[in-house]
Design a protein around this nucleic acid. Structure first.
Length: 643
DNA sequence: TCCCCCCTAAACATAT
DNA sequence: GATATGTTTAGGGGGG
């Protein structure tokens, strides 16, 4: 759903943008061309032709400039990793899931960019800003067009007057005068454009990077003198005119006529839309095969122009994206100041993304991530796009495809991710990448007494994850199913009624691959649990050494994280085992922890397993510090309220 | 390909 | 009888 809709949105968006910007550029040309058929002046044409001869050299120079500009822009696009012209052509093929796009930013196409920006990465406000930017640009273009239309009309009128006045030998002079006037007009136009750009910059809508022009327009307008523009334009227009005269239905026009009359508009298009320069170079060197080539080149012209426009759009979007990223980063930093260490990758909360990041980390803590990310099933996929970033994340993580965290995915998540994710999952309807079992376990462990009724577990789910506020029947069924299915969950008859507890030993057994059979496992478990606690520096240090970012930073630093962190740590145990069983064992932290937080096993010694299980108790007890924070959640709803 | 893990759905039983 | 709670089975997807 998301992807499809997103794709559509994207394509639409691009289409709109293209249409708008492209239309602005192209339409005027057409209209002007038509318009010129009415009011051409042969005399002026002749003068223009002569001038054209004189200016051939300049034209070539201008063409070169234009080419360079084009090349530069293309390079910039490539460098920025945004573009692939081929892809631009194939819009339909662009329907790459955002997640994929995010994973391979280098390959992101403009459309994908738009999609990302529009549907996920950008908040409404940001989108608004973007829209404003677009609108401002459009306005600018429109104004320029209008300005040029007027100029053109004036020019045509003047030319007509001259023509009627009689063929004077001084025609050339007049034409030259016209040229001067026109150049002045061009200058005016440039100024106007620059003003617009400046205003945009002031508003912060336009960002001009040091080495890179925010808009292709700028370099052109600034880098080329009116004459050059004129010449370029002529070349371009000649192609157009040839095309029209040769094959089209439009009223046939003299080449010269077309040149003069349409010169104004074409210049406009040039200025606003440097792409035309490309054409110029093509048409220039084939004066004799104009017909044949011009027709083709005319097409190139348009396509090139469109491409240019597209590039502009992409550039703008890119800039906007960069801005938005910065903003987001700042916001995230602001929100998670303490918990989120600088270490946290600038990347989005994305669990997945983070996961994919460090493989080494994975080795360190194979089970760091609690459980397989529960696959997002139908309802899953993010309904409400949470934080922009997250969305993308969610796409990855929670994508439509059911993922489970295999060891690969167990790669440690950065502490920042966890912290951020916790908040994220509370607000965003994104399926958490944890299995039901791990979540249930977490819920139970977070409780003061390490035991919860079914309803309390439900409440915990809904409280902690926005995702579980929907489709209650489904996930509740899953919860019950898991409680019954896994031995690690022990049902205890209590005064209250039946409560569920966690048998850590059993829980750990679930992943024999990593942990089982190892006596040290238990120890590890304990140690791992200990991490949750406020922690001893020593412990942290050891953890850090073992490259277990999760515990070291996340859970420790941020109390709120405790919930997820503790859940995760359970699974980490295995990892811990591998990486640093020794350290964990030896870590001084543990014993203190235990001492500090005596386990409360609820009244009932759950199982025979429980007997072994003091561990679990201990571990949970250790969490208690976390609880303090967690309790906030716990206490409130935990008591059968939510539903 | 097999096995394991996980998820989802559903039927059924029991208790409140 | 309705609902909540538990238990069990079946089917499917993903990964090792």
């Amino acid at each position: 759903m998301m992807q499809e809709s997103g794709t559509e949105t994207k394509s639409n968006g691009s289409a709109i943008q293209n249409g708008s910007s492209g239309g602005n550029h192209l339409l005027p040309c057409a209209s002007l061309r038509e318009g010129r058929s009415n009011g051409e002046t042969p005399a002026a044409d002749a003068g223009a032709a002569e001038l054209a001869h004189v200016q051939q050299q300049q034209q070539q120079q201008a063409l070169q400039v234009a080419r360079q500009l084009l090349l530069q822009q293309q390079q910039q696009q490539q460098v920025s990793g945004l573009k692939s012209p081929k892809r631009n052509d194939k819009q339909p093929a662009l329907q790459v899931p955002v997640s994929v796009a995010m994973m391979t930013p280098q390959v992101i196409t403009p459309q994908q960019m738009q999609q990302i920006l529009q549907q996920q990465v950008l908040s409404p406000q940001q989108l608004q800003v973007l829209l404003q930017q677009q609108q401002a640009l459009m306005l600018q273009q429109q104004q320029l067009q209008e300005f040029y239309k007027k100029q053109q009309e004036q020019l045509q009128l003047q030319l007509l007057q001259q023509q009627h006045a009689g063929k004077q030998p001084k025609e050339q002079q007049q034409v030259a005068t016209q040229q001067l006037a026109f150049q002045q007009q061009l200058l005016q136009m440039q100024q106007l454009q620059q003003q617009h750009l400046l205003s945009l910059q002031r508003q912060g809508l336009l960002t001009i990077q040091p080495g890179q022009p925010a808009l292709p327009l700028q370099p052109l307008a600034q880098g080329m003198i009116p004459t050059e523009l004129q010449q370029l334009w002529k070349e371009v227009t000649s192609a157009h005119s040839a095309e029209e005269s040769t094959g089209s239905n439009h009223s046939s026009l003299d080449l010269t006529t077309t040149c003069v009359s349409s010169s104004a508009p074409s210049k406009t298009s040039l200025i606003m839309n440097p792409h035309a320069s490309t054409n110029g170079q093509l048409s220039v060197h084939t004066p004799k095969r104009e017909r044949h080539l011009n027709s083709e080149h005319a097409l190139d012209d348009r396509s090139t122009a469109q491409c240019r426009v597209q590039m502009q759009v992409v550039q703008q979007l890119e800039l906007q994206l960069a801005k938005d990223k910065e903003r987001l980063q700042a916001m995230m930093t602001h929100l998670h100041v303490k918990s989120t260490e600088p270490k946290a990758a600038p990347q989005p909360l994305n669990l997945v993304s983070s996961v994919t990041l460090s493989k080494s980390a994975s080795e360190a803590s194979p089970q760091s991530l609690p459980h397989t990310p529960t696959t997002p099933t139908a309802p899953i996929t993010p309904v409400t796009q949470g934080p922009s970033v997250i969305t993308t994340t969610s796409m990855h993580t929670v994508g439509p495809i059911r993922r489970r965290y295999s060891d690969k995915y167990n790669v440690p998540i950065s502490s920042a991710d966890i912290a951020q994710n916790q908040e994220f999952y509370k607000n965003a309807e994104v399926r958490p990448p944890f299995t039901y079992a791990s979540l249930i376990r977490q819920a139970i462990l977070e409780s003061p007494e390490k035991q919860l009724t079914l309803n309390e577990i439900y409440n915990w789910f809904t409280r902690m994850f926005a995702y579980f506020r929907r489709n209650a029947a489904t996930w509740k069924n899953a919860v019950r199913h898991n409680l019954s299915l896994h031995k690690c969950f022990v049902r205890v008859e209590n005064v209250k009624g039946a409560v569920w507890t966690v048998d850590e030993v059993e829980f750990q057994k679930r992943r024999p691959q990593k942990i089982s059979g190892n006596p040290s496992l238990i120890k590890n478990m304990q140690s791992s649990h200990a991490y949750c606690t406020p922690l001893n520096a020593a412990l942290q240090a050891s953890m850090a050494e073992n490259s277990i970012p999760l515990y070291t930073t996340a859970s420790m630093g941020n109390p709120t994280l405790g919930n997820l962190a503790s859940a995760i740590r359970e699974e980490l145990n295995g990892a811990m085992e591998h990486t640093n069983s020794n350290e964990s064992d030896s870590s001084p932290g543990r014993s203190p922890m235990q001492a500090v937080h005596p386990v409360h096993v609820k009244e009932e010694p759950l199982d025979p397993e429980e007997a072994e299980g003091p561990l679990s108790l201990v571990t949970t007890a250790n969490h208690s510090p976390d609880f303090d924070h967690d309790r906030d959640y716990e206490d409130e709803p935990v008591n059968e309220d939510m539903e």
